[in-house]
């Protein structure tokens, strides 16, 4: 699992690569939580290189979204690939979150 961040147009773009499963998610969630605690309010999560996500991964993303909403922040997701897109659709995450085809579209 790889985690990288950069800033653009007032948004923080977070790239998560690899897998978000029951083993790797706690580390991702801790890093996302760290961003929120350090005052980041607007996150675009780029999932271009995320190959797998389970309910544990979704729980980590949802927990981060809840923290952001509580502080009047915002979160969007971009570049969902095959199985990750399927999981977002089955879980209803596609309808409760802003999901874009690209980071550029999320920032527009």
């Amino acid at each position: 699992m790889d985690f990288a961040t950069k800033k653009e147009n007032g948004w923080t773009i977070v790239s998560i690569a690899g897998r978000m499963d029951a083993i790797t998610t706690p580390e991702v969630e801790k890093k996302l939580g760290g961003l929120v605690e350090s005052g980041e309010k607007k996150l675009v999560v780029d999932l271009k290189d995320l190959t797998y996500v389970s309910s544990a991964g979704l729980r980590g993303l949802l927990a981060t979204a809840k923290k952001l909403k509580a502080g009047q922040g915002d979160i969007a997701f971009a570049n969902l690939q095959g199985p990750v897109r399927d999981v977002f659709e089955i879980s209803g995450f596609c309808s409760i979150f802003k999901v874009f085809d690209s980071v550029a579209a999320a920032l527009a």
Binding site: S54, S55, R59, L62, A63, A65, K66, I90, S95, I96
Partner: peptide
């Protein structure tokens, strides 16, 4: 309930739902 919004959405129950759906 997979239609609940971010604030109301419960953390849990999804795993079993995935098994049944897939």
């Amino acid at each position: 309930d997979i239609t609940a919004g971010v604030e109301e959405r419960k953390i849990g129950g999804l795993g079993i739902y995935f098994i049944k759906k897939l």
